[in-house]
Design a protein around this nucleic acid. Structure first.
Lengths: 105, 105
DNA sequence: TTGTCATATTCATAAATTTCGATATGTTCC
DNA sequence: GGAACATATCGAAATTTATGAATATGACAA
C-alpha cells in the first residue's frame, strides 16, 4: 500500500488541481454547459442562460467553478464576459492522468 | 452552439457514466483512497480504514461510490471484500474523453 | 456629463444534497 | 453460538446548489 507522508491524509501536490477539474466535470449542469461549445467557439453568460433552465446567476456560478478549475478561459469585452474551453489544459490534465493510470495501475 | 435534443437539458447518453466517474474522482478522500493502491494491488475496507482518518463505515461508503462509478472492482472472499482499480475502464474512459477534447474542442 | 439600458457578479437566503459517524443488521468462519 | 468483517440505515452537520435582489461595470444616447 502506498503511503504519502505519514498517513493517508497527504496527497501529492500535483493532484490538487486535478481534484478541482474532476469535481467541476462531475456535475451534470456543468457537463451540459461544456457540451454546448462548438470547436473553438466563445459563449457568454447570457447565451448559455438563454438555453438553460437555470437562472442567469446560477449559470454564472457554474461558469466560475469551471473557470477556477481552468477548464474554461474567460475574457471580458465591453459588457460581456466570453468563455471558451481551455483545450490545452484539458488535454494536458487528462493526458497526465491517463499516463499515471497506465504506469501505476 | 451545440444543442442536444430540444434544449440544454439532454445529454448524450455516452456521457452519463462519465459523470459518475468524474464525480467519484472529484472528492479528495476518494483520491487518497485510490492513490493507496500499488500496481495491481488488492485492498479491503479494513486495510484502508486503518490508514485513514475516516470511520470504517465512511470508507465503505466511499468505496461503494468508486465501485458504482466502475473505478474499482470488488470481490468478496470469505469475510472480506477486496477492491482493486479497474484499470481497463479507467484507461478507456479517460482515453475517450481525451479523444473527444482533441476532436471537438 | 447625466441618465438609461444591458450585461455580469455578488449577496443573502432557502432548499437540496452530501458527508460522516453511530448503531443495527447481515455474512462468513471458527 | 460467538467473533470478525462488511454493509445498510438513520440523523446531525456541513457543503453545495439555486434564486431573486442588489450592486458594479460598460455602452450609448440625449
Amino acid at each position: 500500500m502506498k503511503l504519502f507522508g505519514t498517513n493517508i491524509s497527504s496527497i501529492p501536490p500535483e493532484w490538487k488541481p486535478l481534484a478541482r477539474v474532476f469535481a467541476a466535470l462531475g456535475d451534470e449542469h456543468r457537463q451540459r454547459i461544456l457540451l454546448l461549445f462548438e470547436k473553438g467557439e466563445r459563449l457568454n453568460v447570457g447565451q448559455i442562460a438563454a438555453v438553460s433552465t437555470l437562472a442567469r446567476s446560477t449559470v454564472s456560478h457554474h461558469l466560475q467553478i469551471l473557470h477556477k478549475a481552468s477548464v474554461l478561459c474567460s475574457e471580458k469585452i465591453g459588457k460581456e464576459v466570453w468563455f471558451w474551453i481551455n483545450r490545452n489544459w484539458l488535454e494536458k490534465t487528462l493526458g497526465n492522468v491517463l499516463n499515471y493510470v497506465q504506469q501505476n495501475c
